[in-house]
């Protein structure tokens, strides 16, 4: 073999090895992103209303994606209560009024909740695309969110989305083999934690993190406590 080819192969292998190592590292969390008023402590969050978190899961295969309804149902079980418990342990007073029982027979409330969740999902792609713009106070859901703060006592609404992707063995190997990420954790969940002002709908806080599997213990980490619920 000519020295040039050996050199190129060596560089290629090194790159693949570096990518493989990077793939197994916990990714650096660039967030959380804070609204300027929250950062300046002009807004204090003590009481929150937790909206039911939405978990979605898809299986990515060589032939495309498929839903994982059963696994999604399993992953959702208890997630809402874990979110609430974790918020409480962060030192916040938590209301979680949107239980299945509470919504049963109350279509007005059910639709109001669905409308706010939809409004968030409409904003989400723009929010995730430019998360730094939370610092510029660019995003808001509008004061329609106030309908979910019926007592008028909450400071913020907590919106959580957890999106899981499980690669089939075939796709994992093929993709991994190509870019050196064969050992990437599976399934991987991307969870977004968002706090919006309960009165005017301004996005106050956004954090995004990756976990292997649905977040089990702590949904809100130290940075959340530091910025949102300081003692």
């Amino acid at each position: 073999m000519r020295p040039r080819i050996i050199y190129l192969l060596a560089v290629g292998l090194l790159l693949l090895a570096a990518l493989a190592v990077a793939g197994n590292q916990t990714p650096v969390r660039p967030g959380p992103y804070l609204h300027p008023k929250l950062k300046a402590k002009e807004i204090k969050i003590q009481k929150v209303v937790a909206l039911p978190p939405i978990v979605s899961m898809t299986k990515q295969g060589v032939k495309g994606s498929e839903g994982m309804s059963k696994e999604e149902d399993e992953a959702s079980v208890g997630f809402a209560s874990r979110v609430s418990a974790d918020l409480t342990s962060s030192g916040l007073s938590v209301e979680a009024p949107f239980t299945e029982e509470a919504l049963k027979g109350n279509d007005e409330l059910k639709y109001a909740l669905a409308d706010v969740q939809k409004k968030y999902d409409e904003l989400a792609p723009k929010l995730y695309r430019k998360p730094k713009d939370v610092r510029k106070a660019r995003f808001s859901l509008g004061d329609m969110v106030a309908v979910l703060n019926s007592k008028g006592t909450a400071d913020a609404l907590v919106i959580v989305r957890s999106q899981g992707v499980k690669m089939t063995k075939g796709k994992g190997m093929l993709t991994g083999g190509l870019i050196g990420l064969a050992t990437t954790k599976n399934p991987t969940f991307t969870t977004y934690v968002v706090l919006v002002d309960a009165k005017n709908g301004d996005v106050l806080y956004l954090d995004e993190f990756l976990t292997s599997g649905i977040p089990k213990d702590k949904v809100f980490d130290k940075s959340f406590k530091k910025f949102v619920a300081p003692k």
Binding site: E108, L109, A112, D143, M144, A146, V147, N149, S150, K151, G152, K199
Partner: peptide
């Protein structure tokens, strides 16, 4: 109304 708080705030 469900949006009573919202309107009162306005």
């Amino acid at each position: 109304a469900l949006d009573r708080q919202r309107v009162q705030r306005r």
